[in-house]
Simulated scan of single mutants.
Amino acid sequence: MKTPAFRLSALALALATQGALAYEYNVDLKNTGTTTAYDVAVVLSGNETLASTFNGYQGGPLDGYFTDVQESHPASGDTIIHWMNIDGMDSPIPPGRTIHIGWSTQDCDSTVKDMYWTTKSHGRLANSVLHNVTHNLTYVSGRLPIIDFTNVMEAQVSIRLRDVRFAVVDAPLKLEALSSVNAALMKSLRPVKEGVFVLAPGERVSFTVPVALKEGQSLITVYSTGDALQGAASAVNQGADSLHFMQRPVGGGGHGNGC
């Protein structure tokens, strides 16, 4: 399940493609709290089947490779992914440090219920909530694709999102290429929704992507969330400024939810 670290010297191959996977997500996470973290965990709704995880980079501005990544299924029936032990030495994630993780699933649904920093003993860092939303792509042949964002976080917090952008690629990118260190990808992004908007708990918003897609192509959506956008309310949260990368393929006969 673990994906080997992606060395920055290989970024010339950042747009190399891979076999299609149904749902792929990566994120840059900058610790904006006042407390040092060591690990990070995400809770996905239901019993997910993970295809792979991306466990970090070795070197560069997002340096930090998690050597112990565990998947668990508690009594709630959900799926927890826990990235632990950076560089095999429990390297800390102090305020201001940015790391990068990701995952892919074999279906077209990956609902994010919770995300948080954890301590050196792997428990949840007090007051830690990393703001995230659930993303979906709806594609019907002959129509422009629609992306949805839904706030289903268990913490029941309003989430501010900023600058939703997109890119279309002819075949899916590798997980390690879904990152801010991929200069070619970042340069290719086009706007869907500029500026800041807010999703209240349970709220969903939809945007039309202004480009036609072909079967076999993939749509990459990039957006920001985080404490820097939350204002005074962020003072009590051990959170993160996050840059999210979501990749969804167009397939299944050119209709449906993109898979």
Rank of each mutant, 00 (worst) to 15 (best):
F207E: 01
S121C: 02
Q18E: 14
T221C: 12
S218P: 12
K120T: 07
T225A: 12
A232Y: 02
D107L: 00
H135I: 15
G56I: 00
D227K: 09
L137I: 02
A167M: 00
P4W: 05
M84G: 15
A200L: 15
Q58G: 09
P145V: 01
V169G: 06
D68C: 10
L11V: 15
R97W: 14
E215T: 13
G239D: 11
L243A: 02
G46R: 10
I101C: 01
M246K: 04
N132C: 10
P191L: 03
P210D: 03
A5P: 15
V164G: 03
L15Y: 15
A240T: 02
E154H: 11
R204N: 08
L229V: 03
G102W: 06
D227E: 13
Y139K: 04
R204Q: 11
L185W: 06
Y65G: 13
F149Q: 15
G202Y: 04
A212N: 12
E24N: 14
M115D: 09
M153D: 01
D28M: 05
V205H: 08
T225N: 12
W83I: 02
A20C: 01
A235R: 10
A126T: 04
M115C: 07
H255S: 13
D78A: 14
N31C: 06
T225Y: 07
P172S: 06
A228N: 08
G142F: 03
W103P: 05
D68H: 05
A228G: 04
G253Y: 11
A5G: 13
D148A: 11
E71I: 12
T118P: 11
T32N: 09
N237T: 14
L199E: 02
G226V: 00
P95M: 01
P92F: 10
R143C: 10
L15S: 14
D90W: 15
A12T: 14
S104Y: 01
N31E: 03
I80S: 08
V211Q: 11
Q247A: 07
Q18A: 09
G231V: 12
P145R: 02
Y23K: 05
M89A: 15
M89I: 09
T134L: 10
D227C: 12
A200Q: 13
T3D: 08
P4H: 13
D87L: 03
R7L: 09
S52H: 03
P145S: 09
L62C: 11
Y139W: 12
A12G: 09
E215D: 12
H82G: 04
L130T: 09
E48S: 15
I81T: 06
C108P: 02
V250Y: 01
A177M: 09
S180P: 02
F245C: 00
N136V: 13
K2G: 07
V222A: 07
H135E: 05
R7E: 14
F66P: 12
L21P: 01
T119L: 10
V205G: 10
P249A: 02
G253I: 03
F54E: 12
V152R: 14
E203N: 00
C259K: 00
F197K: 02
G96K: 00
G216M: 15
D68L: 12
Q18W: 04
D163I: 06
L219Q: 01
Q106F: 08
R97K: 14
P94K: 14
L229Q: 00
S110K: 00
D107S: 10
L125E: 10
K174N: 14
V152G: 10
V157G: 03
P94I: 11
Q230Y: 13
A167W: 00
